[in-house]
Design a protein around this nucleic acid. Sequence first.
DNA 1: GTTTGACCTGGAGCGCGCTCCAGGTCGCAC
DNA 2: GTGCGACCTGGAGCGCGCTCCAGGTCAAAC
Lengths: 133, 133
Amino acid sequence: MSSYSPSETSDKTGFSIDTLRYYEKIGLLPGIARNAAGRRVFSDDDLRWLDMLRCLRETGMPIAEMLRFTELARGGAGTLQERVELLREHDRRVEEQIARLRAQQAQIQWKIGVYRDAAPVCPSIWTPDWAPV
Amino acid sequence: MSSYSPSETSDKTGFSIDTLRYYEKIGLLPGIARNAAGRRVFSDDDLRWLDMLRCLRETGMPIAEMLRFTELARGGAGTLQERVELLREHDRRVEEQIARLRAQQAQIQWKIGVYRDAAPVCPSIWTPDWAPV
DNA sequence: GTTTGACCTGGAGCGCGCTCCAGGTCGCAC
DNA sequence: GTGCGACCTGGAGCGCGCTCCAGGTCAAAC
């Protein structure tokens, strides 16, 4: 089996049917086949491409850039270098994202510590938890 | 110095003045002082609170939940346990976020490798880079 | 031959988190 | 006393990424 209806594709990829249509419409899914009745027929390659799109999307790549990537991919081997550069740049951004999240997580955990330490102290007196970082 | 005009606060926190007004309006910044002319006066505590808000916001907490956290913080010491629970739950989500990003980053790097390996091969022939994950 | 249900299209609508705008009020500099 | 610039308010508007809708087509089931 290597061709899938819209609803099968939706099930397999987690994208809603509406999103699949939207992605095809804006150009993120060029060359989706159609059957005699005009209905979309997705291939295994399409599913793999959707998997890549999801990865890029969920790591915060804007649709405009995914579109550029898609156009490069359609451009064939001559665009490989550009694709590598685009993905490298994105990889750097993901790295930064992770680093920032780690730092922010430390702040959250520190705050949890502040609250835990404050908890047993003077339960009847107003403590100005309000504001301290 | 421990009181700041809107523009100073904007400079120090990175939030735009419009966002500061918006946050006050929806309840994320209760109790912002005003001077005789009705203008906002931010304190060091306000700046620290804004710092916390930014941390929560940038780690993906929706405004509705930040609002709940703000209300708890205003509620005084009696809400410490709830605040700890809320932050712990958020901390878990941040942890998941980081784990997902790491996995997705691996996928991106793998794809970069695929492209790099493909690069020197048959530059004149159409290679179906299109689709492979 | 009719019903059903999955699919089609173009286009409107939505939720979030701001961002911008018009029209007004101050306080200070000149 | 005029100008300027920072600030005020309520409310409209926006950009993104979908999501929903109305009205239609087609194929298989009964």
